[in-house]
Design a binder for these strands. Structure first.
Lengths: 255, 255
DNA sequence: CGGGAGGTTGACAATCGTCAATCAGAGTGG
DNA sequence: CCACTCTGATTGACGATTGTCAACCTCCCG
């Protein structure tokens, strides 16, 4: 990390985090100011670069400002399993940083920027400001809910349903992060990476996507662009029920 | 739930929770007393009974006092995926109860007792007593770590490795909860339930277990009794590295 | 003794993985 | 502008792991 891709910004860089944490309940002005005032360093990170490596001692928590990242584990045979995908506004390693030793790696899926916040500062604000702490805790619980859905997705759904489910989850989360429309979005990952996220091989992912396309559930002008013609049909094909994302009942996304 | 299986106990019933939460750092006497003094109701629950059902509005958090329970989800085709197994000392639905609406069910795997603690009391103690809140938060992070390992286990390991891995996890967690020895333990689940936990069918679980037995990695006098002859060999077969359980480095279990 | 749940086994089928070739598009240097 | 190269997408042929179906066994319990 050279000086050239490191910047000190104050205030506004952390706005996406505040927006995310306030989703379930507004903060007081003081809480908001404390969050925005957290010390942090903004870094530009290239595609493929690691934010955290397994077994690292984590000293910082990272907030995604732009771009996409994945958490993943490597099993003994060398295969990779992506266990989560993160986008703008999400804290990517509360998990690792509070537990001390990373049990998985976090890697960029595209180029992007992150804000690095010292670990102790996160702990301090969480317990000094109960509303903030509660919002962070709830956020980690929603992460947990998504993990559980992924276990069910990978364990008990066939390839077609699995991929359709992931495409649906992505659609809602992208929209939620202000990065796409329910009509479609650009997938920030290769078919091999999709396979790593769903427990399939890239070849089978390809066949499955083409089959979804043949059946008119999605359209693609280029390999990565996903256009969802009929949301309801795709959701049905993907056995998708958004409940596990724990979005607010009044969220227009769920209309 | 009839009156006959409901008891009011004070103090000692919550001891397993305190023991669990203190694993990563001792509490002050006041914190400990506050935890033990949490209002609660002890219930005896029969095998197969539900503690929480998906879509319930959770009003209580449950602490396992004895017996085993599972969290699970049902997918569209009716298949079931177990996403976690819980034993003595574990809080089984911080998850559901803090998020309001359950995104999965919790069901007993054996008969047992649980202590039900009102949801608000959990939130209150967590923020009134930072050390307690921190321990709870860490506990949910460890749960998350286990979820991630399960995703990798189901997504990227073959049946043999998957089952061996689960048997290893069980061995350490049973020992940790004071319910078995590293030399072996009694599995509290049927082969169909093992399949639901690993994304396999009961038939394939059976073939896999028998193969592990044939190769001398485990022994069984009865179908559910697991004796581990050579821990190292089983761990290797299961691609098992205990790091994701985030046990303390000085824990004798890791010796 | 009968019934039921769970464990065990075999024959066969299906999904998904492997291997390998080809294709398409983006970036690079001449 | 045109090779050249590289990564990722696509496709086919074939094989392996895992699922399905169905039978039978074993143990426990009333």
């Amino acid at each position: 990390m050279t000086a050239s891709n490191t910047e000190q910004l104050n205030g506004s860089a952390l706005a996406p985090m505040v927006r995310k944490l306030e989703y379930r309940g507004k903060f007081s002005a003081a809480d908001r100011a404390a969050l925005l005032g957290l010390p942090h360093v903004v870094k530009s990170i290239q595609n493929q670069h690691f934010i955290v490596r397994e077994r690292d001692k984590a000293t910082h928590s990272c907030l995604m400002l732009s771009g996409f990242s994945v958490r993943h584990k490597i099993v003994g045979t060398g295969f990779r399993q992506i266990v989560a995908i993160h986008m703008k506004g999400e804290m990517v390693d509360l998990q690792n940083s509070l537990l001390g030793t990373a049990d998985h790696s976090v890697q960029m899926l595209t180029a992007g920027k992150v804000a690095m916040i010292p670990r102790e500062e996160i702990g301090r604000i969480a317990f000094d400001r109960p509303e903030v702490g509660k919002a962070m805790w709830l956020d980690t619980l929603v992460d947990g809910s998504i993990f559980r859905e992924w276990i069910a997705n990978i364990g008990r759904r066939d390839a077609r349903t699995r991929i359709a489910h992931l495409l649906c989850e992505f659609a809602l989360r992208m929209k939620h992060a202000g990065l796409g429309e329910e009509t479609g979005y650009d997938l920030p990952m290769t078919q091999e990476q999709l396979g790593d996220a769903t427990g399939l091989t890239s070849v089978h992912v390809n066949r499955t996507i083409k089959s979804l396309e043949r059946d008119g559930l999605i359209e693609r002008v280029s390999p990565r662009s996903i256009t969802i013609g009929d949301w309801k049909k795709l959701a049905e094909a993907g056995d998708f029920d958004s409940g596990y994302l724990h979005m607010r009942q009044d969220d227009p996304l769920l209309a």
